[in-house]
Design a protein around this nucleic acid. Structure first.
Lengths: 196, 196
DNA sequence: TTAACATACATACAGAATGTATGTAAAGTG
DNA sequence: CACTTTACATACATTCTGTATGTATGTTAA
């Protein structure tokens, strides 16, 4: 079983990301020691620093993988309808529910902005998981579904609202109930922007 | 000029909080070294650990002071109207604009949840700066101003939206312009919850 | 008023964690 | 087949938090 350098690299990085993702989400970034990560991944500090350069670099890789997973689910869910308004609502709810299910909220929403800085975090968020939201809103405004309003402002308001919703739901004892409450509230919230 | 223990304590703590607030907001929590903080405050590590117990303890004290400042401004602003609906809008805008002005967003919104944990951060936020939002919404619902909706859910949605708005505005080149856009958007957003 | 005590620090040190410099074996390349 | 690059391992330097201990000064009660 000979391995090419490329395969080896891919495999080592993947393993490190997996292990790090687990530890970052359970202990938080600050309390996860590189020493433990490499030990559990079966390599040494050398491998980690060779591929990721720093602890922050590793975190960024982990964050990207989490964002991508959620982004894919949102996209798939939104595509289930033809009506733009319905697509928007479906996408929002898909984001909230899939982010809640995923036990990586800490990486995605809590440590993310703090560790890599808000600007970088925002850029990554937009590229991976929030891209469609902005596009969807832009399209809807062009087609006259929305009242006149700054799309950038609206995008951030919605994004912030949903992120906080995810964290809140995760803290409540009855996820299903609070998810329903959030769904209702988001639907009403969006109603405010519907062109009359 | 003899100083009582109580005075001395008060003075040292205040000075440490001031210095720490400066460094936390400029360099971020992780990159602010206790050594530098105590040096700049003119005391030693002993004093810091005596009063605050840990770096996290110091941060929590700093966060509380920032939250209190903003909370006071929000309260004052909201009290300028008699109409509940107007009060709500005034309070929201006061929060956003005063948090934007304040150059401690990093402490308040970015490092806060990460350093002391989201649950603790939320509790502090509710006690200091977001308390009135929830109360205001509750009152308004009782008086029939709002559609039937979970107040908890709504509170978190609004809070999250505004926090994100603050960060976004801070990043834009023209604060005044983006603040206006956010104001419009928030007003529309709230409109969705108005009882018909 | 003075002995006993508590408080507010200072100092030195221990422990842990990140990052870096250097070495090495294997794969890739001309 | 020489030689270069890559993917690591290992040892070490640095830095930072937290703790243990010492001390001077203010406070309190007999």
């Amino acid at each position: 079983m000979k391995m090419s350098k490329a395969e080896q690299k891919q495999q080592t990085m993947q393993k490190l990301i997996e292990v790090a993702r687990e530890m970052f989400s359970k202990q938080g970034y600050a309390d996860a020691a590189m020493e433990d990560i490499v030990k559990q991944a079966g390599v040494t500090r050398g491998a980690l620093y060779h591929h990721f350069g720093s602890k922050e670099g590793l975190f960024q890789a982990v964050l990207a993988s989490v964002q991508k997973e959620i982004g894919d689910r949102v996209e798939a869910e939104a595509a289930k309808s033809e009506d733009p308004w319905q697509q928007l609502i479906l996408g929002c709810l898909a984001f909230v529910s899939s982010a809640v299910e995923h036990h990586n909220k800490r990486i995605l929403l809590i440590d993310g902005p703090s560790v890599i800085g808000w600007e970088t975090w925002r850029r990554m968020d937009e590229e991976n998981s929030m891209r469609h939201l902005r596009e969807q809103l832009l399209t809807m405004q062009e087609q006259g579904y929305l009242r006149p309003v700054s799309i950038d402002a609206l995008t951030h308001l919605l994004s912030g609202a949903m992120n906080e919703a995810v964290l809140w739901i995760s803290e409540t004892p009855d996820h299903e109930k609070s998810l329903k409450e959030i769904s209702t509230a988001i639907t009403l919230l969006l109603e405010g922007f519907r062109a009359k």
